[in-house]
Amino acid sequence: MISPRFVRRLSRLLQYGLLSLFFAFVAMPMAVIVVFSFDANRFPSIPWGGFSLVWHEAAWADPMIREAFVNSIWVGLGTAVLSTAIGFAAAYIDFRHRFFGKRLFVFAVAIPPAVPTTILGMAMLAFVSRIGLSGRLETIVACHVAVASSFAMALIRLRLGEFGRDLEPAAWNLGASPWAGLRFVVLPFCRPALIAAFFLSAAVSFDEYMIAWFVGGVHETLPVRILNQLQGQVNPKINAIGAGVLAVSLVLVFLARRFTNLRPEPMHGPDLRGDSA
């Protein structure tokens, strides 16, 4: 006879075990890249060949990688600024106004991330080359903005949900024109979400390779450079570039997270945690 207590213990053990495996599964690829970027060996393998910065130095010395890095920074910055602006405008209109076709309007901003980037990249290239915009860094920014605005809008709209309905009319009542109300009341209130949207859009852009690969032409962003390197010969610099890209991504995502208070919250009642398994 198996005691219920034993079953409960076993169930707990399995749950925590599975969770640990899951986090190991999530963390492992990132750890592998970082660890092997400091490996003196030419090819990542066990045993480790000893600590070395040689691949980091080699990566940094590669002019193509440097150029791609600089491109990525510009594209990321441009995307962050524009996506935040567009995301804010879209979120504010969704919050404040009601008009015919609003759902479609919101949909046009929200849906792009749901389209596979392979298709989107190809469609964007086909269209922008038709209107003579292909092969430019600005075009990568423009196309990234079309996708990243969705995340920016989501974050800012979430924040506006906490915005008191009376605050804006109160500002008008106290002498603020609608534009002044937007500038002095709505924007300051949304500040944390704007910052989060900025970093998240930058992260989305910094990470994106399909669209950048399609529309960028000869201009490579860092992920595109990596993709091209991965398809060529095994290159020990990859880990070093990867470690750098990961570091930037992690910082951006953590910063974005820092300025959002999006967390799972119970709707009603106290947050009781079950005590039987």
Partner: peptide
């Protein structure tokens, strides 16, 4: 991981 370099993790 949702927002950071899927391609690199595949490579890893």
């Amino acid at each position: 991981p949702v927002f950071s370099s899927y391609m690199l993790r595949i490579y890893a």
